[in-house]
Structure formats: structure tokens, C-alpha cells
Simulated assay, not measured.
Amino acid sequence: MDFRRIEAIFLIVFFSLDIFLFLSFRNSQQLVSSSSTNTSTVTEMRKRNISFGTLDTKNGSAYYLGSQPDNSLAQNVNKLRNQEVQYDETSRKLTSSLNSTIAVTTGDRQKVMDKFIKKDSNVLFGSDYKYAPQLSTTSQMVYVGTSKLGEIYDKTCQLTFTIESGRVVSYTQTHVKSMIILHESQTIKSEKEVITNLYANSEIPNNSRISYANLAYTKLLVAKNSTIYIPVWFVTIRNKDSKVSSIKKVNAFTGNIIKNSANGDNGYNAQ
């Protein structure tokens, strides 16, 4: 692989990205600063029956990451056994129907499937994934890509099992073999800053509970056939009355709240 060529491509992409993020940060800086310095926000949230644990005030750090197209699934698909497999070269997605479905319950499904994915003949590169309850439902178990740089909450590196009538019947898989750091680490917003900013912008309703607040990488854009990832806070909010949950996404660098477009898609292509 020509790493000098890859590096040159990422430098070009990153230059364009810098301009985009600078404009985004300038537009949002005043809003983020005013909400994060409001020390009474947490007290006000509790008065409105919004439940949450202790909010971390530490500002960590993260990177801009990049990846090249990954054909590792196609190259290793012949290792899989006891399943009918299809591979889409355009989306680089593997789809599998299990010949023998797997019985699971709400209580044991993670343990059962954690064991299942460890075997290469069941799932390719299973050790590269981690169960994500935040993204999962009763009918789907979502595993996200992991690396030493962090978790990837994105459809470009995801393993999703489908459950029907208490049995795992199939799965889809995408994979990213490696990530490249495009820039030195930068400071990110703290959990407390993100939560209070969401509340200040009317994104957290009264009588709700914050179930999860996780930091992970997700796709920002694709340029010159390379994918750029950025750190994003994923905050799950559950309504105490309706029991319905929703996920809010916040740019960890700028504090911008990420909105979906009219067709339900956006540059931050998280599940």
C-alpha cells in the first residue's frame, strides 16, 4: 500500500475540512459558551424531573480520523460456515442468513452473542466489535467497531443481528480495518457541557431520563474515496411516560447539536 499517497490524499481532505469546521465553530461558539457556564442549569433540570447520574466535567481529547476503503470482508468471506452469505461490493456490506438460528432471551442475549462472534467461522473479525446497548432494540442487537482510538458508532463499521420470535436469524456487517490519525488530539466538550447545552436548546424534555451519554467516532464526510470521522457525543433520552427513547448527537469538538436532514440522513452517518 502506498502510504505516502494516502497521507497526501488525507492532507488535501483535511484542509477542506478545516475550513468547514472553522465556519461551524464560529457560528456556534457563543451558544455553547453561554450554556456551559450556566451553573444553575443542572439544578433546574432536576426540578423539571429530568433524571441523570453525576455529569463528568472533565474535558478530554480526541482526533480527526480517516480510513480508506476496506475489502477485508470480501477477502475472508470463504471462512464463514453454516450460513448463506451475500456481499455487496458497492456498500462493502456482508449480509448473512444463519442456517441454524440462535435462541436468546432479554437476559442472556449479550452473553450468547459475545461468545458467538469470537469464532471466525461465525463472524469475521468478531474481536473488533463491542455490544452497544444504546443502539440496540428488542429486535436488533448492534455491535460497534472498536479500536485503541475509541468506538465507532457508524454504519461503516457495524455488526447488526436481527432477532425474530426470540431467535437470532441473520446479521449484516461492515468493517474498517484501520484508522489513520489526521491531526494531533484536540480538546473536546465535557459530558456536563454537552448535557446542559442540549437542555438549554430544548432538546431534553421535562419528565425524562438520560440513559446513556457515550463518546464515539462517526462519519463526517467522504472525500476522494476516503472517509473522515469525528468524535460525537451520543446522548439517549427516555421519556418516563411514553417509555420512548431518542438519541441526540453533539459534535464533541464544537458542541454543535447535529440535526437530521428532511430525508433522515446527514453527514454524521450514525445508526
Rank of each mutant, 00 (worst) to 15 (best):
A213Q: 10
A213K: 08
A213C: 09
N214V: 08
N214W: 06
L215S: 03
A216E: 02
T218S: 13
K219E: 14
K219H: 02
K219V: 06
K219C: 04
L220T: 01
L220N: 14
L221D: 06
L221W: 07
L221R: 12
A223D: 15
S226K: 14
Y229S: 00
Y229K: 03
I230D: 00
I230W: 00
P231N: 06
P231V: 07
V232S: 00
V232E: 02
W233R: 11
V235H: 03
T236Y: 02
I237F: 01
R238A: 10
N239W: 08
K240D: 15
D241I: 12
D241A: 13
S245H: 05
S245D: 13
S245A: 13
S246H: 09
S246A: 12
S246E: 06
K248F: 01
K249N: 07
K249T: 12
K249D: 03
K249W: 05
K249F: 04
V250R: 10
N251C: 13
N251Q: 08
N251V: 08
A252G: 05
A252N: 07
F253W: 10
F253K: 09
T254G: 01
T254Q: 10
G255S: 07
G255T: 08
N256C: 10
N256D: 12
I257E: 01
I257H: 08
I258R: 11
I258D: 01
I258C: 04
I258M: 04
